[in-house]
Every structure is written in structure tokens, then in C-alpha cells.
């Protein structure tokens, strides 16, 4: 099993930390992982993305231009990454703020209104965990107990009290997912 994922959105949405929690959970489950962030000029302009690879085998290139899954959280990222999903692959997006929805017919597409839900609950910081929950429902690459360990490892100890809230957000995300275009 190898899963190649791009997570892309604005800086501040928790894109990099979501990738880190996913990667650390993979490590806890004894998978091979790589986490490759954008750190260049595009990041300094406000957008952020991270490539996460989780595999049972040694990972070759940490840099890719085609992905099994794209998790897209703003319009710039939709414009850049919709076309990079492999045929038959998966695209998950949050419609909040999007002006153009995905148009591909050869991939599975789901929406998740995570920004809206996080706003309603007054918990903008768990936005990324809601999105992660949606992804994990479709691709349960790591078991919940390892997500827990991943959270413990990636969050500083002073934030460990917030782990149950993060886990709850993941569960909320699983319920929020809506199919948009499903391949037969």
C-alpha cells in the first residue's frame, strides 16, 4: 500500500499540521512516511501545501506531480491541484470561498463543509481535524488508536488536554462528508 496525498490551502488553516498529524500517526502504525512542505515564495504569499506519502515500502521520491488524493481548501489550490489527481483518485474540498467547483469526471469527488461547521461551533482551530476526519472515513490508512498517538507526538505537551476535542472533530468530519461525483 502506498498513498500519495497533497493537502493544500491558505497558511493558517492548519494544512501543514494536519499533514504532520497524519504522518506521525503513520509512523506510530509502523508505516514509512514522508512530509514535504512548500516553503518557498508561494508560502510567503499566503498559500501552503504539503505532500504526505504513507507506505508499507521504502518511499522513493518525496516530490510528486500526481496524487492519489488531493485535499483542497482554497481556490488557488483547486486551480493548481485538481488536474494532478490520478485518474480514479480522490478529491476532497471545502466549498467555503470557492468560486469554481471541481469539474473532473474521472475521479471521485467529495465536499466537506468544515469551515462552516468549525465556525458554527466557534472552534476554528479544529477545522483541519474535521477535514482529516473526512479523509480518514474514505481512506482509513491509520487506525484511531494510532491517530491518538500521532496527536500526542505532534502536539506540544501543553496542548495535550485538547486531544479529545481534536478526536471529536475527526468524528464530526466523518459525518459531514458529502459525495459530489462518484465513479461507478
Amino acid at each position: 500500500m502506498t498513498e500519495e496525498i497533497i493537502i493544500a490551502g491558505f497558511g493558517g488553516q492548519g494544512v501543514l499540521s494536519m499533514g504532520k498529524i497524519l504522518a506521525y500517526s503513520g509512523v506510530m502504525q509502523n508505516k514509512e512516511v514522508s512530509w514535504m512542505p512548500s516553503y518557498g515564495p508561494e508560502m510567503r504569499g499566503g498559500t501552503a501545501n504539503v505532500t504526505v506519502i504513507i507506505s508499507d515500502e521504502r518511499i522513493s521520491s518525496p516530490i510528486l506531480n500526481a496524487y492519489d488524493t488531493a485535499i483542497i481548501l482554497n481556490q488557488q489550490s483547486m486551480d493548481k491541484f485538481e488536474k494532478t489527481v490520478k485518474p480514479g483518485g480522490l478529491l476532497i474540498y471545502d466549498p467555503n470561498g470557492l468560486t469554481r467547483l471541481p469539474e473532473r469526471k474521472d475521479i471521485n469527488i467529495y465536499s466537506i463543509e468544515a469551515a462552516d461547521e468549525a465556525g458554527k461551533r466557534g472552534l476554528s482551530k479544529i477545522f483541519n481535524m474535521i477535514v482529516l476526519g473526512g479523509f480518514l472515513k474514505l481512506k482509513p490508512l491509520v487506525a484511531p488508536e494510532f491517530i491518538h498517538k500521532g496527536l500526542e507526538k505532534s502536539l506540544p505537551a501543553r496542548h495535550h488536554a485538547l486531544i479529545p476535542e481534536n478526536e471529536k472533530a475527526i468524528e464530526i468530519g466523518k459525518e459531514l462528508l458529502k459525495p459530489v461525483h462518484i465513479l461507478n
Partner: peptide, 9 residues
């Protein structure tokens, strides 16, 4: 820069 910035086990 890529190997410096990326995380792996």
C-alpha cells in the same frame, strides 16, 4: 532545501 525541510522517520 528539500531534504532539509522534509520530515521522515
Amino acid at each position: 532545501g528539500a531534504i532539509g525541510q522534509m520530515m521522515e522517520k
